[in-house]
Every structure is written in structure tokens, then in C-alpha cells.
Nucleic acid binder design. Structure first.
Length: 231
DNA sequence: GCGACAG
DNA sequence: ATCTTGTCGC
């Protein structure tokens, strides 16, 4: 059973302690089968001025049709944690867990919108989610939290460069397609940095974001618009 | 003390 | 995350 503090810590001190414990349990080496069922998770927030809300969307994709979801899971509610850089997991994971639980099967791998180990305490939301679910996860972030890119990044799709922090390579900067801001790919849990980069590349379909995350992002937004239309 | 700061 | 029209480019 996962400690309550790993999901809903009562104080910032408890949250910080939980992240250190989770980071200590994170596995940065490969411990996964070649993924057949891959899930993508992303969260949407409420418009400015509206009450604080979070909507989590989980999309399950299979190898047959990498662009048609096998299933989706949705969860929404009022977050107990505000958005604080470095503590994103405590805000979104309660809803992400519910969204993933709504899927008919446990995925072999989850691509998460956000960082994995490329975090101040090595516990970004991808790592956090992976340890809690004990499932392989990869962090797919759209901007840097900590660290600096080393060297130059090519303009061509597929170009990469290391993201370094405190002398350690914590993520790979990836130009997923020409003319777009690069992605930051990091180990979440049970997936090595090299495998994470390979798998993200395999699930890219011509867009900036890999399909699992791209669809989760799109569907979360459509669900938001659909809900707004009903009001 | 100052600046940085995923979604 | 969200606020938002037109505009550049394949």
C-alpha cells in the first residue's frame, strides 16, 4: 500500500519528504517488456477566474492502430494542492490515478506530460506516477525545470542534445520535428534514458508530441470545451 | 539576497 | 495550465 503522504501530503515538509522517498525507489534501468499497450496522460486546467479544477485524461493505444485509442479514462475535480513548480505530482496525480483506473487494462508503459527524474529531487510527475503505480513511465516535458542543454541542438527532426544538471545528464533534449521547440525526454520509472528516447521516437507520428500524450492533451481539451458548451 | 520555476 | 486572430508555410 502506498503511503498517504505520497498522494496527499498535509504539509510542504511532508511533500518534500515524500519526494525523497519516491526518488529513492525510482528505477532508472530498464525493467519492462516491449510495450504493446501504451498510455498517455495529460491534465487540463480551468480557465482564468474560474474555480480551480483539474481534468485528467488517460488514452490507451495499441500497436495495431497507433492513432485510434483502444480506450480512454477521464477524471476531474478540485485539486487539494496548488501548482508549485517542483510539486506538480501532488496536484495532478490524484486525478491521473483515477483516469488510469478507468482504463480496461493496465498499460505496459505510460508517457507522462512533464518531467521524470529531471527534477530538483529526482521526482518529477512521471517518476512519481511510475513508482506509485509500479509501472514503466517516461517523462515528456515541453520546457526545462532544472538543468541546461549542453552543446547545440540541430534543426532537423530527430536531433538531440543532453540536458545536464549538477554534472549529471538528467534528460535528452529532442527536436521531435523541424521548426518546433524541443521536448525534454527523461526516465520516469523502470525505463532507461536510452530506451525512453527510443520509445518516444517510435510513438512519434509527425507531430511535436508523441501520439499517446498528444491525444490525451487534445481529448482533455475537447472534454473541457464540451463541458463548457453544456453550461 | 536574487533569480528560476514542469503543468 | 489558460488568455486568443491572424498569419506564415508545407
Amino acid at each position: 500500500m502506498t503511503p498517504e503522504d505520497w498522494i496527499r501530503p498535509a504539509t510542504m515538509e511532508a511533500a518534500r519528504a515524500a519526494q525523497r522517498e519516491i526518488a529513492a525507489r525510482a528505477e532508472t534501468a530498464d525493467r519492462l517488456e516491449e510495450p504493446r499497450l501504451v498510455a498517455g496522460v495529460d491534465c487540463a486546467g480551468a480557465p482564468r477566474g474560474a474555480p480551480d479544477r483539474v481534468r485528467a485524461m488517460a488514452v490507451l493505444l495499441g500497436l495495431e492502430n497507433r492513432s485510434r485509442p483502444v480506450a480512454t479514462g477521464l477524471a476531474e475535480g478540485a485539486p487539494a494542492f496548488p501548482y508549485i513548480p517542483g510539486f506538480l505530482g501532488f496536484r495532478e496525480i490524484p486525478f491521473v490515478l483515477e483516469a488510469v483506473a478507468g482504463l480496461p487494462r493496465r498499460p505496459d508503459l505510460i508517457l507522462v506530460d512533464g518531467h521524470g527524474v529531471s527534477h530538483p529531487r529526482g521526482c518529477g510527475i512521471a517518476t512519481h506516477l511510475g513508482v506509485v503505480l509500479d509501472l514503466p513511465t517516461i517523462g515528456v516535458a515541453k520546457s526545462v525545470l532544472v538543468g541546461k542543454m549542453e552543446g547545440e541542438l540541430g534543426e532537423e527532426a530527430g536531433s538531440t542534445a543532453p540536458l545536464v544538471w549538477r554534472g549529471q545528464r538528467i534528460a535528452t533534449v529532442l527536436r521531435s520535428r523541424r521548426g518546433v521547440q524541443p521536448l525534454l525526454i527523461s526516465t520516469g520509472h523502470r525505463v532507461s534514458q536510452e530506451t525512453a528516447l527510443r520509445l518516444v521516437g517510435e510513438w512519434l507520428a509527425g507531430y511535436r508530441l508523441p501520439e499517446p500524450t498528444r491525444l490525451a492533451d487534445k481529448l482533455a481539451g475537447e472534454a473541457r470545451r464540451a463541458a463548457a458548451t453544456l453550461l
